[in-house]
Amino acid sequence: MVLTGVIMSVALATSASAHDIKGAKGNADRPDFDIVHTEIVRTGDDLVFSMAVSGKAGASRPAPSGKLAGSSVYSYVWPTSLNSGAIGFEQDQGILAFAVTSHPDFDDTPLYDENGDGDKTNDGDLWHSHWVVLVPDESCGKGALKIRDIEEGAKPKLPSTWPGLPILIDSPDYKPDLAGTIVTVRVPAAALGDTKGIKFDGVTAGLRINASVHAPLACVANVFDVASRDLSLPGRVMK
């Protein structure tokens, strides 16, 4: 499955009433990536991103390859209708998505020491959070997406927690909780500006780091499941 028609899907206008996304069990081969429920709930000053799967959340992580080039990333993703400018990128750069990822071959959260061992560069295998900007790129496969690359020599506007990779990715210190069948992350709503009317979806996917570590750097190579089945972003934030 590839994410086709994504840009058009984000622009679709559907019901404005707040609601979650419920899915049928068995749409993905891997139970830990088989989405059965996705929601974003406003709780106090936070937006709580939540995704339930039919198996144990986070049970699978990519096998280490020993190098960045050609390595894999596993992810739980909430594509949203938020503008990329909401978190500090330039406006209108693509699909702004929140993601919880694991990748043992590199660390893209250089400001934080997630495993508490005193080394900030060795904990990419632990599940952690990102904002990413997704755009179509046929070189990743027909109808496939990538994390938007930063062209050589370009000096785009970037969030303060950008990890230094030449792609539109942000590494805020929002700690995910993977317990039982559910992935949950609390995100300060104030950090996103106006969150009224946010639309969202849920996706589980594997990304591939290009073997040459060159544009495109990170392709969405394998989509395990899509909560809505068509990436129409039917979800609305609930209170």
Rank of each mutant, 00 (worst) to 15 (best):
L68I: 14
S50P: 08
V100K: 08
F49I: 06
A97H: 05
S72C: 02
A97S: 15
L68H: 07
G66I: 06
D34P: 12
A57Q: 03
Y76H: 07
P64M: 02
V36Q: 01
D105H: 00
V100I: 15
F33A: 05
Q91K: 14
L82K: 07
V73F: 08
N115I: 11
V48F: 14
P62K: 04
I40D: 10
T43S: 15
A97M: 08
A86W: 06
S60M: 04
D113Q: 13
G55P: 06
A52V: 09
P64H: 00
V77H: 01
A97V: 07
E39L: 06
A52I: 05
D92H: 15
N115F: 05
F33K: 08
N115R: 06
G116R: 10
S75Y: 03
V36H: 02
S50A: 15
G70N: 12
V36F: 03
A63W: 00
D34R: 08
A57M: 06
P110T: 08
A69C: 10
A57L: 07
R30I: 04
S102V: 00
P64C: 04
V100N: 07
P110G: 08
F98T: 00
G94Y: 04
R30H: 04
E39K: 13
G88Q: 06
G118L: 11
A59L: 10
D113V: 12
A97G: 11
Y112F: 14
T101A: 04
F49Q: 03
P31W: 11
D45L: 10
G66H: 12
P31T: 11
G58R: 07
D107M: 05
I40F: 09
Y112W: 11
R61E: 06
S75V: 07
F106D: 01
G44Y: 05
D46H: 13
D45K: 14
G116E: 14
S81Y: 14
S75W: 02
P64L: 03
G116N: 10
D92W: 09
Y76A: 02
T109I: 11
S84A: 10
D34Y: 08
D29H: 12
I95G: 07
S71M: 01
G85E: 13
E39A: 15
P31L: 10
F98I: 01
D108S: 03
M51P: 11
D108R: 00
S50G: 12
T43G: 05
T101G: 05
V41G: 00
A69P: 09
G118Y: 14
T43C: 06
A86V: 05
V48Q: 12
P79R: 00
N83Q: 06
I95Q: 12
A52D: 09
S81F: 02
T109L: 03
T109V: 10
V41H: 13
I95Y: 00
S81L: 09
T80R: 05
E90R: 12
D45F: 12
P62R: 07
V77T: 13
G116K: 13
I87Q: 11
R42D: 08
G70A: 11
H37K: 11
I95P: 07
V53Q: 10
W78I: 02
L82C: 09
T80C: 09
S81P: 06
Y76T: 02
D113Y: 14
S60G: 05
